[in-house]
């Protein structure tokens, strides 16, 4: 039960909103963090927490692509396939994943480590091709960079190649006093 483990966090979330239902997506995220995806049991529990019916919770949960109603791999790779990334090679990234990890869109590796999902625009159009893995963005992908990310994740569970606070073009490349116009 989420309530037993996260009572304090749940109370904090509820305190942000004058109407309970607003806490629905934050609580679904909590459930997803706990189990890796949103289980039916957690939806039922959230319904009772928010005084909603289970279908009301399900109705919202099924609308949003980031809420997983099925188990995904330990690392959920989401490659942006929208036009801006496609112009600079996102289809190639998908091909690397197919040849290196052996999975296509919607598939998970046999060991349950990687899942690939093709997604629409993640607002990183100037730094494509890009992908998001779990919470992190990886941008300006090259084959070599992709290999290193996969090796890092497999070995240590994280990679230093993930994006930090975003600025593009990079600040150092910009002469700070350069006038605009």
């Amino acid at each position: 039960m989420l309530r037993d483990k996260y009572q304090e966090e749940i109370d904090e979330i509820l305190s942000r909103y004058p109407v309970r239902r607003s806490a629905l997506i934050p609580l679904l995220y909590l459930a997803q963090r706990e189990h890796g995806y949103i289980t039916e049991a957690s939806m039922t529990e959230i319904a009772s927490l928010l005084k909603l019916t289970p279908p009301q919770v399900y109705e919202t949960a099924t609308f949003y692509t980031m809420l997983n109603l099925k188990q995904v791999g330990k690392f959920h790779i989401q490659v942006c396939k929208s036009l801006m990334c496609a112009l600079v090679g996102s289809d190639t990234v998908v091909a690397w994943i197919k040849s290196k990890l052996g999975i296509g869109p919607g598939e998970t590796t046999a060991d349950g480590v990687f899942t690939l999902t093709l997604v629409e625009c993640l607002a990183a159009c100037g730094t494509g091709p890009m992908m998001q893995i779990n919470d992190d963005y990886y941008e300006c992908l090259t084959e070599d960079k992709f290999d290193r990310i996969v090796a890092d994740l497999t070995a240590t569970g994280s990679s230093a190649l993930k994006s930090g606070p975003f600025m593009w073009p990079e600040p150092l490349a910009m002469k700070s006093e350069r006038p605009i116009g």
Partner: peptide, 14 residues
């Protein structure tokens, strides 16, 4: 979320 747009991300994170 408008494809082609990534300015707010920079304002937020920086």
């Amino acid at each position: 979320s408008e494809p082609g747009t990534f300015k707010d991300r920079q304002l937020i994170e920086r």
